[in-house]
Design a protein around this nucleic acid. Structure first.
Lengths: 143, 143
DNA sequence: GATAAATAAGATATAATTAGTCCACTATCC
DNA sequence: GGATAGTGGACTAATTATATCTTATTTATC
């Protein structure tokens, strides 16, 4: 019932990318150092994020990774879904699973409500929200 | 990010126990047959539920398993917690985990809100709620 | 007290998932 | 053409999930 470590790596990676001006590239080596993520494993994670359309990569000298869309258009739920596939707290809520008595099963209905409540929170916060707050805190500290 | 099959087994087991008069014993063999749960594995699951104080077991002839408390005092969240330990959608929300920057980490706070929203739903429904509805449906069908 | 019925406990097995590594390759910039 | 950075695929290791098997232990009942 927990997100995987890889999903956390993905969140932290995208947070790093949100902290630099939109369009700027960061190397996976830099991200892995800043966040303490195993480098080779991170490159795998980045590939998944790229496939999901959340980041874009560029090879060669001066290459790296950047956000594919601005940070205010990426929510935590987007990231979790990108790495873990459809977010379902029970198998009976997964996309291509059909429980014979889904229509009447009360447990199914409770799970669905619980999941929607959670998703609603995870969808209400974007990367920008998370780093905006950071900046505000820093400026307060500097006063 | 899903509950395990064992947790589902536990829920279905407790539902079966809620369907009989409070205090009545059911054998694990009967439960496993009704719910299609591997019998030996179910006995393990029952032991965990007993340890958590949700059911009581009795050995010997005429023995079996029964609810330790009435069904209106057991919620879905109780069952999940009994099997999986503390319910935490991210490791940073687990009980004995202390993230160095937990106080200021915005991601942590979002996860906490999301988890509480989910828990609130899972805590709002008891076993009795689930079987009460069943009975109502049955009586409607019989009209 | 013998017997049969039932759970308890612990060891072990198997499978699936998660986490991480290695290496040869391709693209890009200078 | 050399250095740099991501790509892709095969591989390994660790952990968790899902069981099974065997040997106790308890208890009702005859």
């Amino acid at each position: 019932m927990q997100i995987t470590r890889q999903t956390e790596y993905a969140i932290r990676t995208l947070l790093e990318l949100s902290r630099v001006p939109f369009g700027k590239l960061l190397q996976t080596r830099v991200i892995s150092e800043r966040q303490g993520i195993p480098e080779v494993f991170l490159t795998k994670t980045v590939q998944v994020l790229a496939l999901a359309g959340l980041v874009q990569t560029q090879r060669g000298t001066q290459g790296g990774v950047k956000l594919a869309v601005p940070g205010d258009q990426i929510t935590l739920a987007d990231i979790i879904t990108a790495i873990e596939g459809t977010l379902a707290i029970n198998i009976c809520l997964a996309e291509n699973y059909s429980c014979p008595n889904m229509a009447t099963c009360k447990v199914h209905q409770v799970f669905r409500r619980a999941q929607e409540a959670m998703l609603s929170e995870l969808n209400s916060v974007t990367l920008s929200d998370l780093v905006e707050t950071e900046k505000m805190q820093v400026s307060l500290e500097n006063e």
